[in-house]
Structure formats: C-alpha cells, structure tokens
C-alpha cells in the first residue's frame, strides 16, 4: 500500500465520516439533555429527501439545505412533543420516527417525481461543489505535506468543514457557556435545573431542536454532497452507526470525532477492498460493515472502558414532591 493509496483511503474516510459526525453530534446534544434519540436515522433520511427534492426543484442547493434542516426539525418536533410534552417513551418515539421517515420519503417522492422514490440526479448548482483551498495545486508536489493538504484537507464540500468545526464549537458550548452547563445538568438531574427556576421543557426542546438541525445537515450532505440525489433508504443504517459512535465517544465531542473517523475509515476500507486479505485470512466485506456494530457491543459490554450514559437519559421529567 503506497502513500497515495493511504491518502485516498483517508480522503474517502473523511467524506464518509462527515454524515456520521454530524448525526453523532446531533445525538450528543439530545442525549446530553436526557432525551434518548434512536430516530437519528429517520431524521437524516427525511433531511436527505427534503434537501434533494428542493434542490432538484429549484436548482439551488442552499434552498435544499434549508429544506433538509426543516424536514429534520419537523421530526424533531414530533419527538419533542412525544417525549417531552407528553412524557412518552423516547425509544418508541424514535422507532416511530424512523418508520415515518422511511415511508413518507417514498410516498412524497413518488408523488413529486414519480421515479419510485428517487429524486432526479442533481448537478451544477443543485449540489454542493468541492472547495479548493488556496494554493492546493501549487503545494501538491511538496512531498508528504503536499498531497495531505491538496488531496486530503482541500477539496471537500462546505458541509465537511462545517462538520469538523462543529466539534470544537460543541465542546465550547457544552463546557464554557451557561447554556451548556444547563444542558448537561438537565441530562443528569433535571430536578436540579427545575428547582433552580430554569425550564426543563424549554432546555430539552432546545437540545432536540439542535439535534434536528445537525441531522438536517447530515442528511443534506448525504443527498447533495456525498451523492447526487436521493434514493430510497439512502441513509442505510448511518443513523444507527452514529448512535453507536456516540456510545463509543462516551457522549463527548472529541470522542465523537475519533469514533466517527474510525467508523468512516472502516467503511472506506470495506469499500476499497471488498475482500480484505491479511496474510492467509480473507476478511469478507460483510465483516467490515458489521465491525462498527460489533465494536459498539464490546464497548457497551464494558470490556474496553465503561460507557456511562447521562443519568437522566430516557426518563421523562415528572415533578416530584
């Protein structure tokens, strides 16, 4: 394996990890506020569909992005109403949202485009184009650093850079601001926030809304950045891998970066080498695809470090005497 191959694999990892990272951070906000969200998959799917649809109809990817965020936010609102206002079961609500997105995207897609749930292929201004960072071409020939800068760091769509910027931004928001303090508190012990005169409901809705926006970015990237259009079930379990990454990351922003990179790398390797041969052993691609899930189970089992979720996670808040 030469240097260029490594750069190519890493480059592809970065592309593949971006939706995972955005969705993982989305889940982080929600779960840190005590609202479990297994509906990341559905929200991403809905966002991918709305983004691709509006981008296809208007030819403007930015309007597509806005629509993607709106689609995802709408489902977040459903989750919020069910799990915050009506104190329903957050897991069941998440399951429902996944199905809702899965069904609605095809139903609406068929109605609008009649292509069996697909949108037309996007091109030109209906897609996010790759950004060439300054001096990328000039620096390409510099050994080692050149290709890293020109081929790995440069040449991604804006959403990739946004996703990476979200990591320090999330860290700063969580640990350096009033909002972050309250958000973390409401996921650990909502009664402490409530008795301090701060609305648990409002905080949790805010967290769920941020989750919706980030899932919207993730879905929009899938349909208008990574691919050129929406196809049925195009998230293909990424929402669940993001969920797995969140556990892997122990609910921290930098952990999320690491975990999603790892999972993106696994996917990139599996894509490049369908049957990876290590010495005499051939590793089937199915194994590589299942590896994120297997790793997460191992982490969950506590064999490699313990993953302790936010204490109040999954529990609707009921005032107690």
């Amino acid at each position: 394996m030469d240097f260029n191959t490594i750069i190519q694999i890493l480059d592809s990892s970065v592309r593949l990890m971006t939706p995972l990272l955005l969705a993982c951070l989305a889940g982080l906000y929600s779960e840190r506020a005590g609202v479990f969200d297994i509906g990341l998959e559905g929200k991403m799917l809905m966002a991918a569909f709305s983004a691709a649809t509006v981008a296809a109809l208007t030819g403007n990817v930015w309007l597509g992005l806005a629509a993607g965020i709106a689609g995802s936010l709408a489902l977040s609102l459903v989750h919020g109403v069910a799990s915050i206002t009506f104190r329903g079961n957050q897991l069941i609500s998440g399951v429902a949202i996944n199905f809702l997105a899965s069904g609605l995207t095809v139903l609406l897609g068929q109605k609008i485009f009649g292509l069996g749930g697909r949108t037309p292929n996007l091109s030109g201004g209906a897609r996010f184009s790759e950004i060439r960072l300054p001096f990328a071409d000039q620096l390409r020939d510099v050994p080692v650093i050149g290709p890293i800068y020109a081929d790995l760091i440069s040449g991604h769509t804006i959403l990739v850079y946004v996703a990476f910027l979200c990591v320090p931004a999330t860290w700063w928001l969580l640990y350096r601001t009033r909002f972050g303090l309250r958000l973390r508190a409401v996921g650990e012990n909502p009664a402490s926030v409530d008795t301090a005169g701060v609305s648990v409901t409002r905080l949790r809705y805010a967290a769920v809304a941020i989750c919706g926006v980030l899932c919207g970015l993730a879905g929009a990237y899938l349909a208008t950045g990574l691919s050129a259009g929406f196809v049925k079930e195009m998230t293909a379990g990424r929402g669940f891998i993001a969920l797995a990454a969140l556990i892997f990351a122990k609910w921290t922003p930098w952990g999320a970066l690491f975990a999603t990179f790892l999972f993106g790398l696994l996917e990139a390797i599996a894509n490049r080498y369908p049957n990876l041969e290590i010495g005499p052993v051939t590793i089937p691609s199915m194994f590589m695809n299942a590896l994120p899930y297997i790793l997460t189970v191992i982490i969950l089992a506590g064999f490699v470090g313990r993953a302790i979720p936010p204490r109040a996670g999954g529990e609707p808040y009921v005032k107690e005497r």
């Binding site: 640990y175 350096r176 601001t177 009033r178 909002f179 972050g180 303090l181 309250r182 508190a185 402490s192 926030v193 301090a196 005169g197 701060v198």
Partner: peptide, 10 residues
C-alpha cells in the same frame, strides 16, 4: 451557579 449565572459565559 446553575440557574443563577451572571451571563452567557461561565
């Protein structure tokens, strides 16, 4: 300080 912070920064 939870709930009685002075401003948006901690």
């Amino acid at each position: 300080i939870l709930g009685a912070e002075d401003g948006p920064m901690l």
